[in-house]
Design a protein around this nucleic acid. Structure first.
Lengths: 383, 383
DNA sequence: TTGTACGCGTTATCAT
DNA sequence: ATGATAACGCGTACAA
């Protein structure tokens, strides 16, 4: 190791000079001095402390991403998008798995806040009527007041910007495709109970079925987001004939679970029954699944770029000399001290929330149908 | 936000007192004072700066993990293991994708070192005869000298401890299984050219074939680690009959690619040809693939725990007043100073490399065969 | 039990 | 073009 002072000493210059050279400042430096500093840094294996750097700036060059489970391809693609954008900008990505627990989300957000992250990306969907949502919203608000940005990748109303897809439309479109293939009796295997995305996708499915006058032949099965859920739900379908013309999984993995269950039961897919999913993860390609492609990678990178490109709220530094030190009452107290409650709104001169008052923007990214005929084909009886 | 001084001021105590309360010190504190401080902290939404904390300790509570691509289930499981262990211990995980590029590995290691990470986990395999390996080894050495631990999850000789599986044995075992099933002509689709793991797995395959006196009917196809590679390699196999009795993929995804190609070509699997893989990722379960289970999650968590549990090399703090400042030569040198040079070792008093001289330990974790008869069965002609 | 003061490594500000 | 120094927020010897 070795610090700036050691490098400066070895180079025979002042720390400020060494700093200017090594931090790529645009301050003019003589070529000779620059060379000396560079040489000394090399010699001493100087490694700038990002910690110390972050202490004198509004925030660190760390971006966090909160996923339900990184070992779920839906989230790993997002994480990849975040990290690519972060790395490109010289940032480092922090990752935390929260297992869909709001409490854990709050904890991990706090941990990242402790590191003065530039921002945190919330990758997962929330639950409808989650009792802890207010706590999370509060945690997000406080983080933002401190200069830690937040971006949600799901429709969640966290009081922060969001980059999302229209999950109703996603489900609507895949349903539309199956209907256009001539399928009438369509079963929908839902996602995890209570999740917002589950609700949206079901609504999209039902909406399209209604529009097609097929409300009566629409069938929703409780499910989940994993293979086992899809498999189990399909077994239930198999146990109560007649079979539907098509099965839609709440996501690709569920669809694959359905596919397996059907084929294991000797059902011809796509001959007798069509199967389709949503998300278009790699898995979908492997099994030739008709699905809907989501811009997950882009959502991640876009969120990260939003965080990185946001001009940091410059935290006012204390004005040097004079009354700096011990003016116990007047000086620094101004920050959080006089919190003159404005009527109604709880955050009058709350520090550093320049953007907290503008309505959180929502960016909706597009999706597209991806047809792979291995699992979904035109129905025989109705061309 | 709000800092310790502000909390202390609000509570009417000294910063040290506030610190003792808020940082969970065992220093005795009167109940009343403690309560006051806690209340003030709550009121001011105090968030301890992990940055400042890390500055006064030997390292931060950040652990890094370097993966080739987080959107590859092999690595995402590892990352999950790392993060679980890290989170449990109050650490935060840093993640970087390096796309199998040694240069990028060096860069990202450096970035994590800048944050004074407690340690960095190298999840990916290296290349045989990689010209940049010496640079990486050097970077690892310097990081370790600074107190940033390193752990490799592949046989790589980075000069750091490693937690690995025996990939020769892995390939040997899956080959053994197919041989015991009666298969004679077995094709092996290799991993990416030049990777160490690729070599090891091929060696394991060939070794078992030799032992079985089947060296002549062993067939190696160039491949990769992804679906497309497996698919393409299998198309080549199909183009040059006769077909082998069985196909082994260098990993599960390759095996699934092979499986698809075979079935698309009308070949009955496992009737005519058996297919097997290695790793046992979720995918293998979906398609019912016979494979070898690897303790990837455990490797990740074990590596993280190794880092976290390692006693930090206590960086000697300067002894207050007196000669503190400018004793350019004597002072800090004491750190690694009296290290009784082992003869032949060229780095006498390199600072803080207490463990650099003990031979890097290698922990080999076990694996086990996982049989799923959907893709591999006893050959018809030879029971 | 509590308070005082210093240092961690960096950047920014203010001289020179 | 370069140097000196005050912050940033924290933990911790040391003093009281």
């Amino acid at each position: 190791m070795s610090s700036l002072v050691e490098v400066a000493r070895a180079a025979g210059v002042a720390v400020s000079t060494a700093s200017r050279v090594l931090s790529g400042s645009d301050h003019p430096i003589s070529a000779k001095t620059r060379a000396k500093v560079l040489a000394a840094a090399e010699e001493l294996d100087y490694s700038p402390s990002a910690l110390a750097r972050a202490m004198v700036s509004p925030h660190s060059r760390l971006v966090g991403v909160l996923v339900s489970d990184i070992d779920n391809p839906y989230f790993s693609v997002i994480a990849r998008g975040v990290d690519d954008a972060a790395s490109r900008a010289g940032y480092v990505t922090m990752l935390s798995n929260v297992d869909r627990r709001t409490g854990t989300e709050i904890d991990r957000l706090q941990a990242m806040r402790d590191y003065r992250a530039a921002g945190v990306v919330f990758a997962g969907s929330g639950y409808v009527d989650d009792p802890r949502t207010p706590d999370l919203v509060d945690a997000v608000r406080r983080a933002r007041e401190q200069g830690v940005q937040a971006v949600s990748l799901a429709v969640r109303d966290l009081g922060c910007p969001s980059v999302v897809v229209d999950n109703r439309a996603v489900a609507h479109d895949i349903t539309d495709h199956l209907v256009s293939l001539g399928h009438r009796r369509i079963a929908f295997i839902e996602g995890p109970t209570g999740m917002t995305v589950t609700r949206h996708r079901r609504e999209g499915f039902l909406a399209r079925m209604r529009e097609a006058g097929l409300a009566d032949s629409a069938q929703c099965q409780p499910g989940g987001f994993d293979y086992e859920s899809g498999h189990a739900a399909t077994l239930r379908l198999l146990a109560r004939p007649p079979l539907p013309d098509a099965v839609i999984g709440a996501n690709d993995e569920v669809a694959v679970g359905a596919l397996s269950a059907l084929r294991q039961a000797g059902v011809d897919v796509p001959g007798e029954v069509s199967v389709a999913g949503m998300d278009d993860l790699r898995l979908a390609e492997f099994v030739g699944l008709t699905t809907v492609s989501l811009p997950l990678y882009e959502m991640g990178s876009l969120a990260a770029r939003h965080i990185i490109d946001s001009p940091p709220v410059p935290r006012p530094r204390v004005t040097t000399s004079a009354d700096a030190g011990r003016s116990s009452g007047a000086g620094p107290t101004r920050r959080g001290g006089r919190r003159a409650d404005p009527p109604g709104d709880g955050r009058a001169d709350a520090p550093a929330d320049v953007s907290a008052d503008v309505p959180a923007t929502t960016t909706v990214l597009g999706h597209r149908l991806t047809v792979r005929e291995t699992t979904a084909r035109r129905t025989g009886e109705r061309a």
